[in-house]
Amino acid sequence: MRCGDFRQSYAEDMSLFESPLPRVLLAGLLVFLLVLPGFASTYWLDVLSRIFIAIIAATGLNVVTGYTGLISLGTAAFLAVGGFATAAMAGKAGLPFVVVIPLSGLLTALVGLVFGIPSLRLKGLYLAVATLAAHYIVEFIVTHWDAMTGGVNGISVPPAHFAGLALSDDRSMYYLILPVMVGLLFFTKNLFRTKVGKAFVAIRDQDISAEVMGVDVFRYKLLSFAVSSFIIGVAGSLLAYQARLISPENFPITLAIDYLGMVIIGGLGSILGSIFGAIFITLLPEMLRLATDALGSYWPSLMVIVAPIKTGVFGLVVVLFLIFEPDGMAARWNHIKAYWKLYPFSY
């Protein structure tokens, strides 16, 4: 008797959905997200939009760090490139958002290729340090190229227009961000069912073996940087449209560390992991804020130290995850799923 989930062909093994149920659940979730703005407050729509942008960027980082094994501290710089490219194209050139968003992504991908060149010779620690240096160089450029980026004062971004309608409030931004996120998630998920994605994973697992098997390691490393920074650039572009005013201060190195924290906490090399991590790290300050608001009346001194508490809890969570669950929330999720699958007859 068949009991359990058997995969009998390669196509079955590679399918996106193991069984019909997840497909239905996912469709249900999508419908829920689509109708949500009908009854959610603008505050939660804003939080959700920020979570979606974080999911996009974390997925982009996961492509290069989780799937290809190249550690990048350049996420904040890529977001900045995407954001300022959008500010320039939408603000100065007046292009519509359907052109601006992909172009910002492509421009960021180009910058990503340049970032990726050191990976010709470097890996691991040295590559992390190289991307750290690149972050500071990009930060220096966006701070000092006043004509293009507005310098330290920042630059304002005009709202996106769709069919003559300005997408300036939280609800319409939500409907702009949601489809982009869903599209990019499906793109990334499918990427790892193709030759290119498998080459990325081969490089992560053993670069020498990958080279021996005929994977052009340097080419695919560069490609990984390009794909990753394209996705992050799109996130940066959406960020610019949502924030409407961006300055170099919006993209500190701690932002890059936050994103690295997301993919670690969520799970390296897992799309689901990027989603979990992005939700967790974006909600963390909101939850802390709610908690301090609630406790503030009893303990007023708490309000003063809320910023350090956020930093500290982030650091603590990252350290604890690395020690106790190095594979992240996605692995924990799969454990739970596997446990319930055959419950109560687990053997």
Binding site: I71, G124, I264, L322
Partner: peptide, 19 residues
């Protein structure tokens, strides 16, 4: 543990100490 964990753990430690 792999290099990425080693890097991230010191980054986490730095956030913690900063806080």
């Amino acid at each position: 543990e792999p290099v990425i964990s080693l890097i991230m753990v010191t980054l986490g430690l730095s956030s913690l100490l900063k806080a």
